[in-house]
Design a protein around this nucleic acid. Structure first.
Lengths: 220, 220
DNA sequence: GTCTATATGTTGATAGAC
DNA sequence: GTCTATCAACATATAGAC
C-alpha cells in the first residue's frame, strides 16, 4: 500500500496522532507566549515528542506559527460572521452577534488577545492574509461587514427605531463591547480581582445585559 | 566635582543624552516587537549607540523592558484616572473619560496594544506591579475605580437619569468603547481600510459620538 | 561614558541511526 | 515516523582599551 503510514504512536500521552498533538501544543504555546516568545522545545515537550519531529511535520517554526495564526483568524471570523450573514433586522443581528461571539470565544478565551498581539508585532501577516484570503477566511468581515451594517442602519433609521449613527462607529462599538472582555482579559482579571469562575459569571452577566445596552444606545 | 559626569555626546543624532536616547529607542522597539521580539542591537542602532552602552545604563534587557513597561502602565493610568478622580456626576465623568482618554492615547497609539500584549505574555509582571505599586501607579484604577463607579451609578439611578446597570459591566463597557479602537488598531486599520489620516478622523468622529452613545445606553 | 572585541548561552534546524 | 546527537547562527552580556 502506498498510503501514508499511520503513526505507531511510539510515545506519550493522548491518543491523537503526533501531528495533531504538535499542532495542539503549538496553539497553546504560541497563544500564550507569542511567535517570538514561543520555544520549539516547549511545544515538543507539551506534545510529547522531540523537536526534530516538529520540523519533520512543519518544516520551520515560521510555518508552524503561520499555520496557527491562520487557523486562529479563521476561528475568530467564524465567531463574528454568522450574525452579520443572516438576513435580519438590526435588533436581531445585535442579539445574535453578542450571544454568538461570547459563546464562541468562551471556548478559547486567549484567542482574541493572541490575534491582536500577533497583529501588532507582525502586521505584514494580516495584510498578506487580507489580500490573498478574501475568500479563504469568511472575510465577510471588513468592508463587506461595513456595507452590511450600513444597510441595517438605514433600515432601522427608516423604521424609526434608531437615530442616525455613523455605521463605522457602530460596528467598532459593537465589536468593542463584545471583544474587549476577551482582548483585555489578562488585564481585567487581576484588575477586577476575578478568578476563572468570576470571569465566567461576568460573561454570563454581560451576555444578558449587552444587547439591551446596545439597543438603548442606538434608539432615537 | 563629584557630580555625575555629563555625556560628551560623542555620537549621533538628537541632542538628548545617551541614556534618554536609549530609553526612547527602547520604547519604540519594545512597543512594536514586544519584549521577546525586541533586539538589543536594534535599540542600540535607533539610539545611535552600541549595545555595550545599553548594558552600562540598564544592566540587562529584562531590566530595560521592565522599565519601559512600568512607564507605559503609568502613562496609561494617567490617561484613565483623572476622569474618575474628580468629584462629578456620572454624565460629566463620562464626557471627561472619553475625551481625556482619546486625547491622551492619540499621542502614543500603540501603547494600549503593547500593554495588553505584554500582559498576555508575561502576566506575572502585572501581578507584581499590582501588589507593590498600589500607590506608585495612580492605581485608582482597579477596585477603587469600581467603588467610584458604583457610587456614581447609585447617584445617577437615584436622580432618575439612569436605569440600574451592573457597575462592573458599565466600567468594562466604557473602557471597551474608548480603548478598543487603540487596542485593536493594528487590526482595525487594515480591516476598515484606513490610513493614518483616516484613523485620526475616525477618532475625532468617535470622540464626538461616544459620550452620547454611552448616555443613551444607560438612561432609563 | 563610549567604544571594539569577545565570551557565553540559547535556539532553530539538520544529519543520520533505528 | 520517531529518535539522539550535533551544527550553525544569533543574541545577550562582559572585558577591557580609550
Amino acid at each position: 500500500m502506498s498510503e501514508r503510514t499511520k503513526p505507531a504512536n511510539g510515545g506519550d500521552p493522548g491518543d491523537l496522532e503526533a501531528e495533531a498533538r504538535i499542532l495542539e501544543a503549538a496553539r497553546q504555546v504560541f497563544t500564550r507566549h507569542g511567535t517570538s516568545g514561543a520555544r520549539m522545545q516547549q511545544i515538543a515537550a507539551e506534545a510529547g515528542v522531540n523537536q526534530a519531529l516538529i520540523h519533520y511535520y512543519f518544516r520551520t517554526k515560521q510555518q508552524l506559527a503561520d499555520r496557527v495564526f491562520l487557523e486562529a483568524v479563521g476561528r475568530m471570523s467564524r465567531g463574528l460572521a454568522p450574525a452579520l450573514a443572516a438576513e435580519r433586522t438590526l435588533e436581531e443581528v445585535i442579539l445574535r452577534f453578542v450571544e454568538g461571539y461570547i459563546d464562541a470565544m468562551r471556548q478559547t478565551p486567549f484567542l482574541p488577545a493572541y490575534i491582536l498581539s500577533e497583529t501588532l508585532h507582525h502586521p505584514e501577516r494580516l495584510e498578506a492574509l487580507m489580500q490573498q484570503a478574501m475568500h479563504t477566511v469568511p472575510a465577510a468581515v471588513g468592508r463587506r461587514a461595513l456595507d452590511r451594517v450600513s444597510a441595517l442602519v438605514d433600515d432601522a433609521v427608516a423604521r424609526g427605531v434608531m437615530r442616525p449613527l455613523t455605521p463605522r462607529q457602530l460596528l467598532v462599538s459593537a465589536l468593542a463591547l463584545v471583544a474587549f472582555p476577551f482582548v483585555g482579559r489578562p488585564i481585567l482579571m487581576p484588575l477586577l480581582d476575578m478568578d476563572e469562575e468570576d470571569f465566567s459569571r461576568f460573561l454570563d452577566e454581560r451576555r444578558a445585559e449587552l444587547p439591551g445596552f446596545l439597543l438603548h444606545a442606538i434608539r432615537p
